[in-house]
Simulated scan of single mutants.
Amino acid sequence: MIIPHHLLIAEDENLAAMALIESLEAEGFRVTLVHNGVEALEVDEKDPAALLLTDMRMPVMGGGALIRTIRLRRADLPIIVMTGYSECLPQEVPGRLIVLRKPYSLSALAGHVRALLPHRETAEH
Rank of each mutant, 00 (worst) to 15 (best):
R96S: 11
I79E: 05
P59N: 14
C88T: 12
I70Q: 04
I98N: 11
L52W: 13
I2D: 03
D44S: 10
H5V: 14
E11K: 02
V34Q: 00
A110N: 00
L7W: 11
A75L: 14
I98T: 12
A115R: 04
E124K: 10
A108Q: 12
H6M: 13
G63V: 10
A65T: 15
T69S: 14
L8D: 01
A115Y: 00
A49V: 12
I80R: 03
M18V: 09
D12V: 01
G63D: 08
E11T: 01
E92Q: 10
P94T: 11
G95S: 02
D44F: 04
E124L: 11
A65C: 15
A110Y: 00
I80A: 04
Q91A: 15
T54H: 03
L20C: 07
L15E: 10
M1Y: 10
S105G: 05
S86G: 04
E92N: 10
T69G: 09
T54L: 04
M56S: 01
V38C: 13
H119R: 15
V60D: 08
E42D: 12
V31H: 03
V93C: 10
P103M: 05
E42G: 07
K46W: 13
L24N: 01
V43I: 15
A108C: 13
M18S: 08
V113L: 07
I67M: 05
R30W: 13
T83R: 06
P90R: 11
E121D: 04
A19Q: 05
R120L: 09
L8H: 03
T69A: 14
A75K: 15
P4N: 06
M58N: 02
G62P: 00
A75T: 12
L66K: 08
A17P: 04
A40E: 05
A110H: 00
E92C: 07
A17K: 01
A75D: 13
A40D: 06
D12R: 04
E92A: 09
R120S: 10
E39G: 07
P4Y: 04
R71L: 08
E124P: 12
M56P: 01
L8G: 05
P48N: 11
L117P: 02
A123E: 12
E27K: 14
I80K: 03
V43W: 11
L77F: 11
A40Y: 01
T122A: 15
G111N: 06
H35F: 09
E121S: 03
E124N: 13
